[in-house]
Design a protein around this nucleic acid. Structure first.
Lengths: 115, 115
DNA sequence: CGGATATTCACCCATGAGGGTGAATAAAGC
DNA sequence: GCTTTATTCACCCTCATGGGTGAATATCCG
């Protein structure tokens, strides 16, 4: 945690904002795969898929091992930690807000009961 | 949870991928604010800030109440639920992977001890 | 060596994003 | 009614993105 610079949060969120790239990650969650294997699943060209993979690499979400002419891709979910952390901060805000609303309603209920 | 269509996940991730917009959300987490209030914090123009706010609105992360000429903005973190859910899925994959690595190391350790 | 396979490089194109400015609209306030 | 304030609309510019194609590179295999 916290081992990725702030700019990476931008790249991670940006990377996963694309449905094709999320699908690539889903594919790699099943098993490691070559660029061609990943590309064969999608209606877009091999070339475009290769570009998506590069975006995921820059976000640190995909690792590549070159073995001869084949590039073996694997999922690297650890950069998602900072993203999850960021989100949780706001979800906490949300539950706090609900809690104070609840407290308010409860207080009002008590006041009305008391009157 | 699950009450936002899939396209919203795109918009949410895309919206929070920009540091200015994350800063706007941080500002609104402190308190509700007008467009001008939010804009005054940033080095960019009021107009650009207004555009960022619109992006956040389309992602469902900001709500707007028009009161006369003032537009009061408030944080709406609930669309982050689906984003958090998506991320958690891959973090689970990550911990599963660690667990099986751990199991492998443990097994190998036992085997070596046994030999 | 020569051909097939895997991947990227170098482009082209259209669209959207993020920044800006100046004018328009709408509501307050004097 | 006129002016100020709050916000958006309508543009402009630049750069990145997502899609494509064709050629280059690198490796494997017969």
């Amino acid at each position: 945690m916290g081992e990725y610079p702030a700019a990476t949060l931008d790249r991670v969120f940006s990377a996963v904002s694309d449905p094709t790239r999320r699908a690539i990650l889903a594919r790699l969650a099943e098993s490691d795969a070559r660029v061609t294997d990943v590309a064969s699943v999608f209606p877009i060209s091999l070339n475009s898929t290769s570009k998506h993979i590069r975006v995921l690499e820059r976000a640190g979400l995909v690792r590549r091992k070159v073995r001869g002419r084949e590039h073996i891709l694997s999922l690297e979910p650890s950069p998602l930690s900072d993203a999850a952390e960021w989100i949780e901060h706001y979800r906490k805000f949300w539950s706090d807000q609900l809690a104070s609303l609840d407290a308010f309603v409860t207080r009002r209920g008590n006041a009305e009961t008391a009157s």
